[in-house]
Design a binder for these strands. Structure first.
Lengths: 194, 194
DNA sequence: TGACAAAGCGACATATATGTCGCATAATGG
DNA sequence: CCATTATGCGACATATATGTCGCTTTGTCA
């Protein structure tokens, strides 16, 4: 039952992801996605009825993946420092992956008064992200690897300041060392000196 | 000669500014600006031929104003701490002024591959901003009010991290204390303890 | 105040995106 | 293998934004 449809939808999401990350949400049209996937208009509309729907399915997808990743590693008793390292690396690679990151598209999507006003998927993603970080930090405090810090504060610095820095340095086309510094500061904020 | 035209153009820029700040760059159409100003299509096109042109004129306008403001105050030998306070307050009020700030629209404008690719106005604005901050910080170091810090680093933290935090806290609809904390940290980074 | 220029108007042609529909083709399961 | 359903196609109607143009109205200045 419908294996091909699933594959097509996944292909659509993958192609659309790159488009959203490169151009932002509003800049991407159904026609663009048609061209990227090789589907015709009718073919695409068969699976998704709007860019909004595609976007939301992408966004919801990867916050859930992130969540399970970290929780699985904590259950395997992998050192908190290692999980932290990996999570930061994932942020890093996501940002580097495309000319511009998907984060801005998410911001654009959510801040736009005409779209996604009653939708709370992005807020939900934020809650999930916060939950993941809080769990990791508390876990690290439990294993005596991390200092006693406020998980929420660390999360805010990371997600907000770090991504803000990334965005703006890319905007200004600066090879700024600031993002690297911030990652370093987050680590030193968390990790116990020994 | 042409006083009315100047006044109309200024009105267009003022109305358009609010639209860009609220909705981002791409979301604003010439028709929107018509409605906001009360002008007809033909009337608007008489003055500006695209939203891009209007946007650039706005952006170029206010970085130049900021520059002269700070330099005038330094010439009047106003204490560096006071100028700093005022500049931070201006950032703050600009961010609070609209539902969303113009900063995002600037980012959107510049990062969009299809627009403003060869234009360097935004980069120029960045250079001007950096120049202003560097001058202020060096001035404060000269008057022995500020500690010896790297002006560029402070600027980056301010513009990048601060605005990133602002953006994301608004995105997530959080009444975060982080922006306030960051301003506090910038001040303590700069000001000498006495 | 009258002539000329500037500003403003709205209909029109053009371009592009959306969303739909009947039909064609390909996959699936009995 | 055939019937049925899922998938894919492209033309079409609709909607919205752009940019133009001839005409009217309003300023401006000699």
């Amino acid at each position: 039952m419908s294996q091909k449809g699933d594959k097509t939808r996944q292909g659509i999401r993958e192609k659309a992801y790159r488009l959203f990350a490169e151009k932002g949400f509003k800049e991407v049209t159904m026609k663009d996605i048609c061209e990227a996937t090789g589907l015709s208009r009718g073919g695409l509309y068969r699976h998704y009825e709007s860019t909004e729907q595609i976007f939301l399915e992408i966004v919801n997808g990867f916050s859930n993946r992130q969540k399970s990743d970290v929780f699985v590693k904590m259950e395997q008793h992998i050192p908190a420092a290692d999980i932290l390292e990996e999570l930061l690396a994932k942020y890093e690679s996501e940002m580097m992956d495309c000319e511009n990151s998907i984060s801005l598209a998410i911001y654009e999507f959510y801040s736009n008064p005409t779209i996604g006003k009653e939708d709370n998927s992005v807020k939900k993603q934020y809650e999930i992200s916060k939950e993941v970080w809080a769990a990791l930090i508390n876990y690290g405090i439990g294993t005596n690897e991390f200092q006693c810090v406020d998980p929420e504060a660390v999360f805010h610095v990371l997600v907000f300041a770090y991504q803000g820095v990334r965005m703006y340095s890319r905007l200004m086309k600066i090879d700024s060392e600031i993002p690297v510094q911030i990652v370093g500061e987050i680590k030193s904020l968390l990790l116990k000196k020994d």
